[in-house]
């Protein structure tokens, strides 16, 4: 019999002597329980003796258990082993963000050749509405050193991504031809934007406004040839390198 069947069977059993006595011992007996117990005792007075013994046994057992588990009161959690306040939490968060950073790097590698040729970016019209109002009035992309802006074909800005002129994108740039760039550009599709944005910096402006620098994460889809895709992976020295992406192919099995 499975444990589930056993549980169901236990629950279906009619109220009996053991259950009535147990409820009285636990001070959980209802008026109906007491009525049933009295009715039972009229035919079999030994119920009262059983009830007395059950109460006595429970008192003894409770005392024994309380005595045994009182030892727990002297055992504290060894929190001095925690690596300082919030250390592990921060470490975990950093690890999470590192994951995002790697994902962003891969995204940059995909779209790097496309930056600087904005007219080739296929974006549907309604995606331009994702840009918040204050971005429209913010500094131009030219003012943000080290950043480059995406623009829709109509010229409205979508936001900023880190400069492709980073070490990790170089191999891709060198390996890519104009023909590949065009193929990538025509196959890239903006799907959505992640709802949360990471704040990098807030700078007060002389006119009293605030300049907000933050990261927006866009979800994009691109169709590329396998030879054009690079992944960022740490080498033996722990330095991130762009390496060609290779698909895992199912093995042919034992010969």
């Amino acid at each position: 019999m499975s444990p589930m069947d056993q549980n169901n069977q236990e629950a279906r059993e009619p109220v009996d002597r053991d259950l009535l006595i147990s409820r009285v011992v636990d001070d959980a007996a209802s008026a109906q329980d007491w009525q049933q117990l009295r009715a039972l005792a009229e035919y079999d007075p030994s119920v009262w003796r059983e009830l007395f013994e059950a109460q006595h046994a429970q008192a003894e057992l409770a005392q024994a258990v309380q005595q045994a588990i009182a030892i727990a009161d002297g055992i504290d959690a060894p929190t001095q082993d925690l690596g300082g306040p919030n250390f592990r939490f921060r470490f975990r968060q950093a690890a999470t963000w590192a994951g995002w950073a790697v994902a962003a790097s891969v995204a940059v590698i995909w779209v790097a050749p496309h930056i600087g040729t904005p007219q080739a970016t296929p974006v549907s019209g309604n995606q331009a509405t994702l840009v918040p109002e204050f971005i429209q009035g913010g500094p131009s992309s030219e003012e943000l050193t080290g950043f480059e802006a995406y623009r829709t074909p109509s010229g409205s800005r979508l936001g900023e991504l880190a400069s492709p002129r980073s070490m990790t994108t170089e191999p891709f740039r060198q390996a890519s031809t104009n023909q590949q760039n065009n193929a990538l550009a025509t196959n890239t599709e903006h799907l959505a934007e992640m709802p949360d944005r990471e704040l990098l910096e807030i700078r007060p402006l002389p006119n009293g406004q605030l300049e907000v620098i933050y990261v927006r994460r866009l979800i994009e889809k691109a169709v590329v040839d396998e030879g054009d895709l690079y992944q960022v992976k740490p080498d033996d020295a722990g330095i991130d390198r762009a390496v060609p992406y290779r698909q895992r192919r199912p093995s042919s099995g034992p010969i």
Binding site: A68, D76, A77, T79, L82
Partner: peptide
């Protein structure tokens, strides 16, 4: 406690250690 605050971890343990002891028992 999940954020690593030592006092929260301690408080959480202290409020549950008795029944944990009973389970072990």
């Amino acid at each position: 406690a999940t954020e690593g605050h030592a006092e929260a971890v301690q408080q959480l343990w202290q409020s549950h250690r008795r029944w944990v002891a009973a389970i072990v028992l």
